[in-house]
Structures are given as C-alpha cells and as structure tokens.
Design a protein around this nucleic acid. Structure first.
Lengths: 222, 222
DNA sequence: TGTAAGTATGTTAGTGCTTACTAACTTTCG
DNA sequence: CGAAAGTTAGTAAGCACTAACATACTTACA
C-alpha cells in the first residue's frame, strides 16, 4: 500500500526544497514503519526518492533529525484529526454513539494509516526520546477524554461506580488490541467490518458498566 | 607498572559449553528486548557475558541463529507455563474464577518477564520469520482457549449470543493493552494491584456478556 | 597417583562490508 | 550571473564474523 510514493525514478526530477523535503519525510515514514529506524538506511530512502544520498543530508542534518520530523508530522496531523472526532462525539450524551463512533474512528484510522501504529511502537521500543510525546499526544489524550466522559456518566447515575480510568483503558484496550493484531501480527481472523466490530465492542462494554435497569440511556428527550 | 587501567575482565571464568550457551541466550534476550535485534551488537552481548566476541560465534553460527535460539527458548518455557494456568482454570465452570485467574496470570506474567512482550513486538515489527510462530504460540492459542470456553457458556445459556472470537479478543485486549502500556510505554497511572485490575476487568467483561438475570454462577464467593 | 596428551574453552587481531555523513564539483532555472 | 538543487566520490567508524593462537580441564596410562 502507498507504494506509489516509493517508486524509483530513472530521471532525477528537480524539485523545490519544500516539495523534496515532504517527499523524503513521506518515504522515510513508510520505510521506518516497515523496518524501524535502525533497520532503514539513508541510502535506501534516497533510492526510493530517486535522488542521491547527499540530498537527504541537505534537508536533514542527521538521520535522527529526519526521524524527529516524521514523528512531529504524524503527531500534528493525527491529534488534529482525532480531536475533531472526539469533540464531535462528546457533545451529545448518547453513550452508544459516543463509544461507537470512537471505536469506529480508531479502527478506521489504523486501517487507513498502517504506518502510525508501527512507528509508535518502534519509537517506544527503540527508546527514541520523542516516543513519549508521540504516545501522550495520542492514546493517553484519548484515554483521558473517555475517562472524563465516564466520570460524568457515573455522576449522572447512568454508569455503575467503576474506576473511570480503568474502564477507559479497558475500552481502548479492546479496540487498540484488535487494530494491533491486524496491523502488526497480520492475524485477520475476525471477519467483521469495522462498523460491526465497533458496535459489538460497545455492546459488551456498555452492558458491562451500565447500571442495571439503565437499558439504553439515549439522551432523554424530556 | 601494572596497567591497571585495563577493562573489567579480571578473571575470564571458564564455563562449560552448556552453561555459557545459556548465559549468552539469557543476556542476548535481555539486550534484544531492550534495543531490538538490529540495535544490539554481538560485541555488546560478549561484553555483558564477560567474554570475547568470538565465543558468541562458537556457540551460534550467526547472530540470526542466536535470535532463533532465544525465541525458541521463550516460546517453549512460556507455552508450558501458560497452558498449565489455562487448563487449571478451565476445569471449573466458574466464570469469575476462569477469567479472573486468566487476567491475573497474564498481568503477572508480563510483570515478571518484561522482556517477553518487547521481544514479541520487536520480532513482529522487524519482520523476523519466527515472529509468526512466536505470536501463534502465545496470544492466539490463549485466545482460542477463551473462545471455546465462551462458546460453551453460550450453549449453557449463561452468556448472551455474542461472537465468541470477538468477545475473546475484547477480553484479551483489555488485559494485554494494560500490560503493554505498562511495559512499553511506561505509563503507570493506574494504581491498582494486578489482582484488583484483573477483578475489575472481569467485572466489566462478564457484566457485558452475561445474560440478564444470570448474576453469576459463582459457587461460593460473597 | 602423576603427568603428558588431547580437548574444550578462551583470547587477539584482524577481514571485508556497510553505515551515516561530507567535500567538492556540476547542472538547472529565474 | 547567482542561487538553488543536483551529482560523485569519498571517509571514518562500526558491524558480523573468522583464523590462528593460548590456556585451562579431563583423561589415559605408567
């Protein structure tokens, strides 16, 4: 996938600095996500960009700098997208809609961008100093959002008095583990659409934390 | 006169082949789990073993062979331990005990052996050919065990008619994500013991999949 | 039992290859 | 022209891996 960006060019098309820079970032992101930072050579990146190796180092002082630029890039474009979805769903107090769209968006996000999770894990495992920011800006921020929502719904009397942070992790865990098994371990045994999967996770989760009697708790119209 | 500024290798303790081999495997497992296969050098392994680099290659033809030995080792000792726990819990039909001990054992396992999860992820991300076996022998096997149990309990009329494989993944996901956040991302915000955490995950999960009215087939637990 | 021979375990000092990165030069374009 | 975008041809360091030699332990046999 996305191998269109990785094609080699026989003729070195001359590009402007910004364009070349973006191209290098995109290509390197793909390669780093596939083989890790240490497993990818600057020569390899240059070849995929159809350019000599020295060009890489005109745009990025070191290989590490390039990695930093990639993570920065990913974080920015990701948090922006995620926050939109979170806030969109947070307004209403429809539990099914909130968790359903959340799970669906997470699954879809990781389906569309297979590199993200791999980059995140690689950076954490390889102990890169930006991995913490990378992590905090994504999973943790999302988890906190859910935690606050659950806390509110407990106060509303809709959910049982469970620990909000733990419940949030439980829900995120279901969804992320599914995405991870698919993206990292290529174990695609569950033949559900992301929508179906999201609905079923929400079903289990909400039944698990709702107060007995509170069957659906859709936004009471009165 | 004594060139005391020499490296710390005062007495090259002579070991028998098997002992040295095991030592190298243990050291390399630790280092690979911390820095990955590509991120760890054979020199480094030798230094930690207090031995010259050539010794590594007397026991293992290539660095790759060493990696293979480590994964084999981990798989064997792990599946053995895990299967015991699974079968021990499977006999009784106490849902709380089954899922509770399962979650607890998983959390404890990953707390005790922090290298396992890192090795598993590294091998999958770096695309090592043994990673599939590594994966199948652990998470997948366990998930199948749970899937069968859930299927049985649905037939018993204790659980709602949900998809067993999906429910199994949901449960495993909760637990493994928690272990992963702790081991990989070092985000230790949940201040619960593993026992408490297991109980709470089970609480959410079982309430989520039990038939209404089936409060819980606990034999004797108040 | 003493000890030389034989073997297992260790060392040093490399090899050739790959890597990130650089210097110095050439080509394209406004 | 002059600057921006490209090239070639390196370098020093680090890598997995090896050959040749050194030392400790075991065993065979008087």
């Amino acid at each position: 996938m996305a191998s269109a960006a990785l094609q080699q060019r026989p003729r070195p098309t001359r590009m402007r600095a910004e364009g070349r820079r973006n191209q290098i970032v995109a290509i390197a992101a793909e390669l780093f996500s596939q083989k890790g930072f240490r497993g990818t050579t600057t020569k390899e990146i240059a070849d995929h960009a159809g350019v000599s190796e020295a060009i890489i180092f005109r745009h990025f002082a070191t290989k590490d700098d390039l990695y930093r630029a990639i993570l920065d890039d990913k974080v920015n474009q990701t948090t922006a997208r995620m926050k939109e979805n979170l806030n969109e769903a947070a307004g209403r107090k429809d539990d099914n809609a909130y968790f359903g769209s959340l799970a669906y968006e997470m699954l879809e996000f990781h389906r569309k961008d297979g590199t993200f999770m791999r980059l995140l894990l690689f950076s954490a495992l390889e102990g890169h100093d930006l991995s913490e920011i990378f992590f905090h800006s994504t999973a943790r921020e999302m988890k906190n959002h859910i935690r606050r929502y659950i806390k509110q719904r407990i106060a509303d009397g809709a959910f049982r008095p469970i620990d909000p942070a733990l419940a949030a992790r439980a829900f995120v865990g279901m969804v992320l583990n599914q995405a991870q098994v698919r993206n990292i371990f290529r174990d695609d045994d569950l033949r559900f659409s992301n929508r179906q999967m999201a609905d079923r996770f929400v079903d289990i989760f909400l039944n698990g934390i709702r107060k007995p009697g509170h069957t659906g708790s859709r936004p009471a119209r009165g």
